[in-house]
Nucleic acid binder design. Structure first.
Lengths: 215, 215
DNA sequence: CCTCTTCGGTACCGACCGGTACCGTCCTGC
DNA sequence: GCAGGACGGTACCGGTCGGTACCGAAGAGG
C-alpha cells in the first residue's frame, strides 16, 4: 500500500505510515488519509457529484483548510481517489482470484462474492464515467487505464491456463465482467456474475484446447 | 409517438400535437414538449445531476414559471424524461432490429450502429443508476422496468428464431448488451458490440438447434 | 369585447456549491 | 523553550442550486 505515500502537494512529510502496520482502515492521524478513505467510500456509495466537500469534511472531521492544503481542489481529490480505488480494487481482485483457485473463471467468483455485499454499487469507474460530463476528460482516461490493467490481469490468467488465444479471450472476459457488474448493480446479487461465468466457461471450452503447458 | 400526450399534471390540454404532423423535433409551441426534448438530450450527454434547471431553461427558452407549471420539480421531470427515453429507445431498437433482418443477433448490429455515433454515451438508464444516490429509489425501479422490456423483446426475438431455451438466452443476451454498451462508452466505437455479437452467435450455435418452426 | 389560459421574464428565497483567508491550538524537532 | 508545521474551526466569498411568487403579453373562445 505504498500508493498512499505519493505526495503531489509537497515533500515535507515525515513518515506517514508506521513501518510495520500493514492494517489499512487504521491510521486516522493523517488528514489526507482520512479524506481519501472517506471520499472513496462516499463517492462510491452516493456518487461523486452527490458528495460535496462540505459533507466530506463533516464526515471525516477534517478542517476545511486542511483539505485545500492537501488537494488543489475537488478535481484533484477525485483523481487521487480513483487512483487509490484502482490500486485497492486490483489488489483485492488478485487475492480473491487466488482464493478461488487462481483460474481465469475465478474472476467471476470474485465478482459474485462482491456483488452479494450489501453496499455493492457496481464498478466505481463505470459509475464515474456515467456521471462525467466530458467524454474526453480525465475520468474517462482513468477508467480506460483501470480497465486496461484488469484486462492485462485477465490476459495473464488465461495465458497461464494454457489458452493460446488469450488476448481475444481477455477482451471477451472483460466485456462479460462489465456486463455482469452493471447487471448486478441493477438487480442486486451474484446471479449475473454466475451467468457471466457460465458464458465464459463455454468460451473457454469452445476455444483451442488448454493443452497442458510444458512439464 | 402518442407517448407525449400522456398528462400527469392536469387533463385540461386541448390537443397538443397537430393531427397530421408526425415530424418530431418540431412543434416548438409546447413548453412541456420542449422541456422534455431538451432535458432528454442534455441529461444524456452531460448527466442528470450536471444539468441544472437554470441551464435547461436557458437552452429550451422556457420560462421558469412554465417549468414548474408542468412539473412538480426536477425529480418529476427526470421521471418523465426516463419514461420518454424508454419508449423512444424501445421503438428505435425494434425498427433498427427489423432493418437488420429481424433476427436476435440484429440487436448487436443496432448497438454497433448506435455506438458509432459521435454523441453516444452508453445507456441512459445505466448512467442514471450510476449517479443515483439511492439504490432503492425511483431511478433504479425505472431502470429495471426498462431492462425488463428489452429482455422481453430479446426473448421474443430468440423464441421466434426457434430456440427452445429462449428465456435463458435472453438473460445472457442482455448481459452481453449491457457489457457491450458500457465498453463502447469507454472506448468509443462499435467494436465491443461486434465482440458481443460474436459471443452471442456462439451461444446460439451451442444452444439447442433452431429446429424449423412448424410449416 | 372580455375572460381565461398559457406563455416568457424576473425578482427573490434559503440552501449549498467549491474555494480562500485567517485564527488559535497542538505537536514535533531542534 | 522556542520555532515551525499540521491541524480543526470559522467567517466569508461569488455563484449556482431547486423552488416560489408575481408580472404583463399573447392568443383563443365565448
Amino acid at each position: 500500500m505504498d500508493l498512499d505515500s505519493c505526495q503531489l502537494t509537497d515533500g515535507t512529510d515525515r513518515f506517514r505510515l508506521a513501518p510495520a502496520s500493514i492494517t489499512l482502515s487504521r491510521m486516522p492521524t493523517d488528514a489526507r488519509e482520512r479524506l481519501l478513505q472517506g471520499a472513496e467510500e462516499l463517492f462510491y456509495t452516493e456518487g461523486i457529484r452527490a458528495v460535496g466537500v462540505e459533507r466530506l469534511l463533516a464526515v471525516t472531521g477534517v478542517g476545511r483548510a486542511s483539505f485545500y492544503r492537501h488537494f488543489a481542489g475537488k478535481d484533484e481529490l477525485v483523481h487521487a481517489v480513483l487512483k487509490r480505488r484502482d490500486a485497492h480494487w486490483h489488489a483485492w481482485l488478485e487475492e480473491t482470484v487466488a482464493a478461488h483457485g487462481g483460474g481465469p473463471l475465478a474472476v467471476f467468483d470474485a465478482l459474485a462474492e462482491s456483488a452479494e455485499s450489501e453496499n455493492f454499487r457496481g464498478c466505481a469507474f463505470i459509475n464515474a464515467m456515467a456521471e462525467a460530463s466530458d467524454p474526453y476528460g480525465e475520468i474517462f482516461r482513468l477508467a480506460n487505464e483501470h480497465k486496461g490493467k484488469v484486462k492485462d490481469l485477465l490476459d495473464r490468467l488465461i495465458e497461464e491456463a494454457g489458452y493460446p488465444d488469450h488476448r481475444a479471450l481477455a477482451e471477451q472476459f472483460i466485456l462479460l465482467m462489465d456486463g455482469a457488474t452493471v447487471t448486478a448493480m441493477r438487480e442486486r446479487g451474484g446471479a449475473a456474475a454466475r451467468q457471466a461465468r457460465a458464458i465464459a466457461e463455454r468460451l473457454l471450452a469452445s476455444s483451442a484446447p488448454p493443452a497442458r503447458l510444458s512439464a
